[in-house]
């Protein structure tokens, strides 16, 4: 079984992010790390291959400047190899362009299953996985909490507000994995050292046969016209305890209709 996992490499969320004021793009000049939301997809893929008793987990990513820091983390977890698409012409690519590029890279890998996180932690469009499935013309299932491969089918417990739906479709298919449904393994020391030697194939747009005018800023159909700071959190209401604070808190929660 061959599983390809889409992983995004993002600026470290622990550091203050910054937008380029001239383009409104997130600055990605510093070291990029594995998006935590994608670590669930990597873990799910590794578990699927392990339970199948064999197979291959490969990664696909699109990042500027040949960045591989995040890929190395996922390789250290146990993935076998990676394909990185990096091309200066990709700056400003929107969600659809990203999906086209990743789909072109994935189609060369002929996977049985493609996994992705539900949404990235920096862009949050939550649309790229399904667009990839569309571009590849394969079925997709969203919000997976559990995945099983049986024969030529993938069976998924699809998380809903009320519980989960059982959904099934033929492979090859794309499944987006809900964050938190598995416990991503820590990269071990040996995994980290082994990851340095694992193959990362770097491709540019010409290698994928993609016209550079169809992606990047010029090809984007999505434009960020304005950026506004998020509203600062309000201080909240402070209840002084004169012996009746618990009653006031109950009353407050009651007004919010949470109790």
């Amino acid at each position: 079984m061959k599983v390809v996992v889409c992983v995004k490499q993002i600026p470290d969320p622990a550091l203050p992010g910054e937008l380029d004021p001239s383009t409104n793009y997130l600055k990605r000049d510093d070291k990029l790390i594995l998006d935590e939301s994608d670590s669930y997809g990597v873990e799910m893929a590794l578990q699927l291959v392990e339970s199948a008793g064999g197979g291959d987990v490969s990664l696909v990513s699109m990042a500027p400047n040949g960045a591989v820091g995040g890929l190395r983390t996922a390789l250290a977890m146990g993935a076998e190899g990676a394909v990185l698409v990096s091309d200066a012409a990709l700056a400003g690519t929107d969600a659809l362009g990203t999906a086209k590029v990743l789909a072109a890279a994935i189609s060369r890998m002929s996977p049985d299953l493609v996994l992705a996180g539900v949404e990235s932690s920096d862009g949050y469009t939550g649309t790229v996985p399904e667009m990839i499935a569309g571009a590849l013309n394969i079925p997709s299932i969203t919000f997976a909490k559990q995945i099983q491969i049986e024969g030529g089918n993938v069976k998924v417990q699809r998380q809903t507000e009320a519980g989960y739906d059982d959904v099934e479709c033929p492979t090859p298919a794309l499944v987006s994995v809900t964050a938190g449904v598995v416990e991503p393994r820590y990269p071990s020391f040996k995994g980290i050292m082994a990851a340095k030697k694992k193959p990362v194939e770097e491709l540019d747009l010409s290698a994928l046969g993609i016209d550079s005018s169809s992606v990047g800023k010029n090809g984007a159909r999505q434009e960020t016209v304005q950026v506004t700071d998020a509203e600062e959190r309000q201080a909240g209401e402070i209840i002084e305890d004169d012996g009746d604070a618990h009653e006031k808190i109950i009353e407050f929660l009651g007004e919010l209709k949470v109790i």
Partner: peptide, 14 residues
């Protein structure tokens, strides 16, 4: 050193 940074990162993750 990339290795040393990787070791620091790996230990921090644990």
């Amino acid at each position: 050193s990339e290795d040393h940074e990787a070791i620091r990162d790996g230990v921090r993750r644990v």
